[in-house]
Every structure is written in structure tokens, then in C-alpha cells.
């Protein structure tokens, strides 16, 4: 019984989840690119500091910008560690690369097992740290929504179960159940990517540019808004 479930989760479900994520992300990217080009086309000032915007994105990817400031230093650094883990482990763990190889026919560099173990542990601890940080900081606590709590928890699941899959002796649960939970939770996450704030993995790259373009007005837009609202003859 469990075996057939695992088969399903390993094969068709995994492919479905990956496909759903890819299609969803592609849609988001295309929409955003289209919107940005449209905005650019209409802008009266087409000098957009693309490079500066990209540089600001890169600055936030690396930790030393926020390591220099004392506010939220620990939280931001935890977030950095967490992101390293959630990107590196799914992509570069030897067992995963084997799957990618089998599914896509592509193969690449893999993490040494010991490093992968440590990274997994760090990711889990970092996720807990982020949740804790969210809880103790009153500002982030009040602005948090359901997904801000749920997603880190959901991220912890595949990492913990994945660790047990690699080290069955440490696992308190049945190996097959653990494996199934690992697969299903990871797939759920993949499917959620385009529909949750996880979409920042692709939209993050354009947000700084978007902000710049938001300030690049189309000339005459103010007047056109007035006309649309039927107020063209009205004074201030």
C-alpha cells in the first residue's frame, strides 16, 4: 500500500508538482516582463538605472550589507543561512541530483554528504529561528499573515524528514512513512510557490527595477486620469 503511494509521489506527482511550479513561475515572469516593458515604453523618462537596481538586489543577497547595521542583524543573518539551505540542499544533494538526472537527463556538482547534513541542520534551526524572530519582534508579529507562519513550518518538514531518509537510524518513525511525508511536503511546497510569497524567488529580481519604473510617469497621465473620471473641466 505505502509502496504504491511512494511510487506515485516519486514519479507522476513529483513531475506534476515541478510542472505546476514551472508553469506558474513562467506565467508570473512573463506577466511581469510584459508589464515592465509596457511601463518603460510609456515612461517620459526612459533613463532607468537598471544596473543600480540589479546591484541593490545583489546587495541584499549577500549578508554584509545588513551585517554592518545593528538593527535586525541576527534576524537577517538567520534569513541568509536559511536561504542558502533551502536553495542548496534541494538542488545539490547527491540523492536529488540523481533524481534530476533521471528526470531531466542533467547532472551537476553535488554536495559532500557531511556538508549536506550540516546544511540541513542549519536550515531547520534557521527556520525555527526565523519563526522565533517573527514572534518576538512586535512589528513583524503584527504584520504577519497565515502564510508567514505556515510556510517556514512547511519548509521544515521536508528537511527534517529528508535528514531521516538519509539517516534512518536517527528516525523515530517508520522509514516509508517518513519518505512519503518527505516527498509530499516537498511537492506541496513546489506547487505553492507561484501562489504564495515564495514567488519572490523570481519576482525579487525585478522589484527594485519596478520601483524605479513606478516613478517614471507617462507624460499626460494625470490629465488622462481626470478625463477618465469625467473631471476634465473641474479645477483643483
Amino acid at each position: 500500500m505505502l509502496e504504491s503511494w511512494i511510487e506515485l509521489a516519486r514519479g507522476p506527482l513529483l513531475r506534476l508538482a515541478l510542472l505546476a511550479m514551472a508553469v506558474g513561475l513562467l506565467r508570473q515572469v512573463l506577466l511581469q516582463v510584459w508589464e515592465i516593458s509596457w511601463a518603460f515604453h510609456r515612461a517620459g523618462d526612459q533613463v532607468v538605472p537598471w544596473r543600480v537596481a540589479l546591484r541593490r538586489n545583489l546587495e541584499w543577497l549577500l549578508p554584509w550589507r545588513y551585517l554592518q547595521r545593528k538593527e535586525r542583524r541576527a534576524y537577517n543573518f538567520t534569513s541568509f543561512l536559511f536561504h542558502v539551505g533551502v536553495i542548496a540542499v534541494p538542488l545539490f544533494l547527491a540523492g536529488h541530483v540523481a533524481i534530476w538526472n533521471q528526470e531531466l537527463g542533467l547532472s551537476w556538482w553535488t554536495l559532500p554528504p557531511a556538508v549536506a547534513d550540516w546544511l540541513t541542520a542549519i536550515t531547520v534551526v534557521a527556520a525555527l529561528g526565523l519563526l522565533l524572530g517573527r514572534m518576538v519582534n512586535s512589528a513583524s508579529r503584527v504584520i504577519s499573515k497565515f502564510q508567514d507562519w505556515a510556510l517556514p513550518v512547511l519548509c521544515i518538514l521536508p528537511f527534517v524528514t529528508g535528514f531521516w531518509v538519509a539517516h534512518p537510524l536517527w528516525s523515530p518513525f517508520d522509514a516509508q512513512v517518513v519518505y512519503l511525508v518527505h516527498l509530499l511536503s516537498a511537492e506541496l511546497l513546489l506547487i505553492l510557490v507561484p501562489f504564495s510569497k515564495l514567488v519572490h524567488m523570481v519576482l525579487f529580481w525585478v522589484s527594485q527595477t519596478s520601483s524605479e519604473l513606478g516613478w517614471r510617469f507617462p507624460p499626460g497621465s494625470g490629465e488622462r486620469v481626470r478625463v477618465t473620471l469625467g473631471k476634465e473641466t473641474e479645477g483643483i
Binding site: Q28, R72, N137, I143, K145, H200, L203
Partner: peptide, 9 residues
Amino acid sequence: ARIPARCAN
């Protein structure tokens, strides 16, 4: 509207 981390930085 899609990306906020709600980190309170």
C-alpha cells in the same frame, strides 16, 4: 502585493 517578506526591517 505578491512578494512581501513581512520581516519588519
